[in-house]
């Protein structure tokens, strides 16, 4: 058994090594694949806070992923067409600056998570899954019919957005940005899991009655987790759209929500690097098997089935055993 901490460091180092190797070997497509894995891992890491620690099985996280994507798309669209964005009485100029776009993506998706969470957390179990799914679908159909920003066809951005001091068009530099954000979010997750909030949230998942009897409100704890979770997934959405310079309603689809859950289950629910392992395996399967057959999802399904049946801790659990209790 490898200690989970060492495994996590090895994983993140390995991911970085692959991208650096691809840069030296002049394989930009491999860098793009690695960037895709990093961004999907970031989106799933957001979900992992709600699902892993808080036990909130959200089948609507595509809503936040898509919102992040559309925040980027809309702001960049207005910047490249030199038209202001009219929001009722306010008129905002578009922007091609990544930090500003990220901030907006975090705020918009966090706010959406607050509203969706307030309504959804009145339910639990299957009803929670269904109501989050319904919210996700609402955004999906709204995006399809939103013709001002491309409707079903989506919205293309001519040039990737900029980051001060970097040339984001160079694949390895954009990878670096995404990689650093992923590491920061994972660090945040690790701190959060051990914090007073993490202790209470973890208890709210396992024994809500206990949390109430010590005088805390489990629903409020879960709501805060849901907002944090949605904001992070929204940030990932903005990066994802920037990677392909394209945003479309598919980012809002329920399959996207399902994929995020699959990534977490593959890697290990509530495990710090579960989303990273899940995303790397997913992108590799998608690329390798996807080249051989259009039906590669079948094999993903088989792997998922085996993990659910025989390895409840996911791939991380297979390698490093059950999660250690903090001391």
């Amino acid at each position: 058994m490898i200690r989970e901490r060492h495994l996590n460091i090895g994983l993140l180092a390995g991911l970085l090594a692959v991208a650096l190797w691809a840069m030296l070997a002049d394989q930009p497509f491999t860098i793009t694949l690695a960037t895709r894995a990093v961004i999907l891992a970031l989106a799933a890491a957001g979900l992992n806070i709600a699902l892993g620690i808080g036990g909130l099985v959200s089948l609507g996280h595509a809503a936040f992923f898509g919102l992040g994507g559309y925040v980027m798309g809309v702001l960049a669209y207005h910047a490249q067409t030199y038209t202001p964005l009219e929001l009722g009485p306010f008129s905002i100029a578009g922007t091609k600056s990544m930090p500003l776009i990220w901030l907006a993506a975090i705020c918009v998706s966090g706010l959406a998570a607050l509203v969706i969470g307030l309504l959804s957390l009145r339910t639990s179990g299957v009803y929670f899954i269904m109501i989050t799914l319904a919210f996700g679908q609402m955004f999906y159909y709204f995006a399809i019919s939103w013709s001002a920003y491309g409707g079903e066809d989506g919205l293309s951005i001519y040039v990737r957005n900029g980051f001060p001091g970097l040339n984001t068009l160079v694949p390895i530099q954009f990878f670096g940005i995404c990689y650093v954000i992923l590491c920061l979010v994972l660090y945040l997750h690790a701190r959060l899991a051990r914090s007073p909030f993490g202790l209470a949230l973890n208890a709210a998942r396992q024994a809500p009655v206990r949390v109430l009897t010590v005088g805390l409100d489990p629903t409020r704890l879960k709501l805060v987790a849901f907002v944090l979770s949605g904001a992070i997934t929204g940030l990932a959405g903005a990066l994802f759209a920037d990677l392909y310079r394209f945003v479309s309603p598919t980012m809002f689809s329920w399959q996207m929500s399902g994929e995020l859950i699959v990534l977490i289950i593959l890697g290990g629910v509530a495990r710090l690097c579960g989303p990273v392992v899940g995303a790397v395996v997913f992108v590799m399967l998608e690329h390798l098997l996807g080249g051989l057959t259009d039906f590669w999802h079948v094999w993903l399904g088989v792997i998922l089935l085996l993990i659910v049946l025989f390895a409840r801790g996911g791939l991380i659990g297979m390698v490093s055993g059950r999660a250690v209790a903090h001391d």
């Binding site: 701190r191 959060l192 051990r194 914090s195 007073p196 909030f197 993490g198 202790l199 209470a200 949390v211 010590v214 005088g215 805390l216 704890l221 805060v224 903090h326 001391d327």
Partner: peptide
């Protein structure tokens, strides 16, 4: 933690 009533701390390890 419940008795202290301050669960809204996200950074320092609770232990």
């Amino acid at each position: 933690l419940g008795a202290g009533g301050r669960p809204w701390r996200f950074w320092r390890p609770v232990l």
